[in-house]
Nucleic acid binder design. Structure first.
Length: 456
RNA sequence: GGUGAGGUGGGUGAGUGGCUGAAACUACCGGUUUGCUAAACCGGCGUACCGUAACAGGUACCGCGGGUUCGAAUCCCGCCCUCACCGCCA
């Protein structure tokens, strides 16, 4: 094992730093979002799937293929030039060694012509690569066939729901009032220490955080996920690998002195553990879980969305991540949904599961299920989990592959989901379980909290 | 923060400007041999792209980028990273 950070896996020799646009024009079409080979295999299918997202520029697919054709032609030409150049270089040495100076000089002349030609081709290749890359960056992942065609959150499909809405009386308070009443969370103190959106939990409020984290991690571990405690600072390459960079740069906190970002989710460090890795097929599936604080700038959010715990700059979350064989990934997605569902059920929260429509789905996802819990005093649904299959979209950026016994390599599928994000769970727990004198803690959490009620 | 060392294939580790995509060992795979385990011997064994029906073949890659040269792992410049020790700190 030794110093290898990912023991037992085959590591790629090359660990490209984050600079996809500046990659050599020769060779690989560089890091792409969608896998170009897949698009080429069936361009019409790609267009059909993209239209599910209401992606406007379907002509991009044809442009892409045309550019790729150009790229191939240029490479073939360039290879021929370089091949001649290489053999010529060998001859030169021999010619001089044999005393054939005149012929050697002639070869040098030809060689410099080729060098000139090579430089031209390099420039053209760079240009085509750049165009190809730019275009590929604009393409989101291809939605799965089951993704509803809608455009807005209203068009999301409710897959199923569960739990029972509590009947609260008129005196029921929203969670931010409850947090103050029972001295669980101090929002003003957070403002003092950092700013709005950085609540300070205290007393039973803090203990409840710890309890939920431990509970979620235990459940994930029982389900076969290996627990990690990764770094929360991530570098550019990691941000690129999972798709946060370059698009969502503004959503992450940047430690500019060190060019590191605060991870917006444990998905980033966890998934990037397998960046530049070729797994043996027998090593699949990979299941990982981690608790981390998550940091999001949430620029542009306002109003009731940011009240109390509804939307924060820092929050706690347990994440589950899987690396799977393409044949299994959708079955696994359902399995993950079932896992998350078991959590909200155990917490006795009213919930519903949404299949996100094409217009509401994230850029990198092929299919996403959102979990929402009912926040009874606010009388609104709060998103507490998002479970997605990214198919090869992330794997392509990560260069995360697996190989079978014949050394045949293919991109793996990556999936992840919150299991779960704490703040809105806490909001719902506080609001839904309140009565005149206090707040009841769900039975399943009591071994973790050490108390059954908050307040009287 | 300071000083020093170093980045070559899965690992260890050679490498004089052309015969090095790269010695050797090791690991791994296949084969031969062998009462068993083991050993010995032979062969294979990087990644990506182009190319092919598939082979073949071509090109690039010795941390990254650039330069010198007919020709660079090897020489020059810039950058990045890692390790060790000292200092500081949890």
């Amino acid at each position: 094992m030794g110093k290898d950070r990912v023991p037992a896996f085959t590591r790629c020799r090359r660990m490209p730093t984050f600079a996809p646009r500046r990659q050599s024009p020769i060779g690989s079409p560089a890091l792409t979002m969608l896998h170009l080979a897949d698009i080429r295999r069936d361009p019409e299918a790609a267009k059909a799937r993209l239209s599910h997202r209401h992606f406007a520029n379907l002509a991009a697919i044809d442009e892409l293929i045309a550019l790729d054709d150009q790229r191939k032609k240029l490479q073939t030409d360039h290879d021929a030039v370089l091949a001649e150049s290489n053999s010529l270089a060998k001859e030169v040495g021999q010619l001089y060694a044999q005393g054939k100076k005149a012929e050697g000089d002639a070869a040098k002349v030809r060689s410099s012509e080729l060098k000139q030609r090579s430089a031209e081709l390099t420039a053209q290749q760079a240009q085509v690569s750049e165009a190809l890359q730019t275009l590929l960056y604009t393409l989101p992942n291809l939605p799965h066939a089951s993704v509803p065609a809608g455009r807005t959150p209203e068009d999301n499909e409710v897959v199923r729901s569960g739990g029972k809405n509590p009947s609260l009386d008129a005196t029921a308070k929203p969670h931010w009032d409850l947090a103050a009443t029972y001295d669980l969370i101090d929002f003003e103190l957070g403002v003092k220490l950092a700013g709005s959106g950085f609540p300070v939990y205290k007393g039973k409020g803090a203990r409840l955080q710890r309890a939920l984290i431990a509970f979620f991690l235990d459940r994930a571990t029982e389900a076969g996920y290996t627990e990690y405690l990764p770094s929360v600072l991530i570098n550019e390459a990691s941000g690129f690998g999972t798709g946060q960079l370059p698009d969502k740069e503004g959503q992450m906190y940047l430690v500019s002195e060190d060019k590191l970002y605060l991870a917006p989710t444990a998905e980033v460090p966890l998934t990037n553990i397998y960046r530049d890795v070729i797994l043996e097929e027998a090593q699949l599936p990979v299941r990982m879980t981690a608790y981390t604080s998550c940091f999001r700038r949430e620029a542009g959010s306002y109003g009731k969305d940011v009240r109390g715990l509804n939307r924060l700059h820092q929050f706690e979350k347990v994440e589950i991540v899987r690396i799977e064989h393409p044949d299994r990934s959708y079955a696994v997605l359902e399995e993950m949904v079932a896992h998350v569902e078991s959590l909200v059920q155990a917490l006795e929260l009213p919930y519903r599961i949404l299949r996100l429509c094409g217009g509401d789905m994230g850029f990198t996802s092929a299919l996403t299920y959102d979990f929402e819990v009912w926040s009874a005093a606010q009388e609104r649904w709060l998103e507490v989990s998002s479970v997605s299959n990214f198919e090869t979209f992330q794997a392509n950026r990560l260069k995360l592959r697996f190989q079978d016994n014949n050394k045949k390599k293919a991109l793996a599928h990556t999936l992840n989901g919150s299991a779960l994000a704490l703040p809105r769970i806490v909001a719902a727990l506080l609001e839904n379980n309140q009565d005149e004198t206090g707040i009841a803690i769900p039975a399943v959490l009591q071994p973790y909290t050490g108390f059954a009620r908050i307040g009287g």
